[in-house]
Each structure stands twice: as C-alpha cells, then as structure tokens.
C-alpha cells in the first residue's frame, strides 16, 4: 500500500517485495469453480498480510500473500472447510494473522464493550425520558 520509511526498512530483510500498490489476485490463481473462488476471496479478505501494514492478503502484492492465497485455494480444492483453513493459518502464524479477531478470552472485551457502550447509551436516553415524565 503505502511505502513509509518503516515498511521500507522492514521489507529490506524480508521477502524482497516488489513494491507496487496494484491489487493483488493474479488471474492464474483464480479457481474455475465460482463458489470456491468466492470462498477463497472471502477468507483472503480476513487474513492479514504478515509483512504489510493493515492489509489483507487479498489486497497485497507481497509474495508471501500470494503463497497464502494459493495455499487457501489448494485447501479449498482438497475439500477443507473454512474453519479448518482458519485453524491451520492461526496454528502457524498465531492470532495476529486474523483481521477479524476470533471471539476468545483475550478478545472478550473487544467484542463485548461496544455492546456495553450501547447499553449505557440506551440507559441514558431512558433515564432522561423518565426524568422528563416525572417533571411534567
């Protein structure tokens, strides 16, 4: 995506990426079966490109992203379901690779706090309304 200083230093010793910002999926990767390809794209959008910043492998030009896209497609072809593919990727690369964090102990707050914020908000609105009714 964007070549900041950091990324340049970083990529220096990582896979020597050809730094361009062109979209990623190449025609030769695409699966013949449309439904399978769609699944592959959806998974790819949730998988982080490890050597990029905030970019999914679906959008990334990095060779590793390409390898992972092909790996995902191969696994889909061999009949693995989405969950097995996600499990494989997290077992190798950790939770860091998921752009949509899984719901587990350490992301408990991440997923529940927005709901909690909303509940506080709803409470404030109703309290205000109650006070109004009491006044009038």
């Amino acid at each position: 995506m964007i070549k900041n200083k950091f990324f340049i230093i970083f990529s220096f010793f990582l896979f020597q990426t050809f730094l361009t910002n062109i979209g990623a999926v190449e025609p030769d990767e695409v699966l013949k079966n449309n439904a399978q390809e769609l699944r592959a794209r959806n998974i790819s959008k949730n998988i982080r490109c490890m050597v990029c910043q905030n970019q999914s492998i679906d959008e990334s030009e990095a060779p590793l992203a390409k390898d992972l896209r092909i790996l995902i497609r191969n696994k889909i072809k061999s009949g693995k379901d989405d969950k097995e593919i996600y499990n494989f990727l997290t077992s190798r690369y950790g939770d860091f690779i998921l752009l949509q964090p899984a719901f587990k102990l350490n992301t408990f707050a991440l997923w529940l706090l927005p709901v909690f914020f909303l509940l506080i908000g709803v409470y404030v609105i109703f309290r205000q309304n109650k006070l109004f009714k009491r006044k009038s």
Binding site: F13, L14, F15, M50, V51, P63, L64, D67, L68, L71, R92, Y93, G94
Partner: peptide
C-alpha cells in the same frame, strides 16, 4: 521450492 515448508513453519520473512 515454493515456500510451503516455510508456511508450515510460520515463516514470514527470511532469514
């Protein structure tokens, strides 16, 4: 040859 072992080892940048 095609980086599969590396992925299996969770490698993301060489060396």
């Amino acid at each position: 040859r095609n980086g599969e072992i590396a992925i299996d080892w969770g490698v993301y940048g060489i060396p």
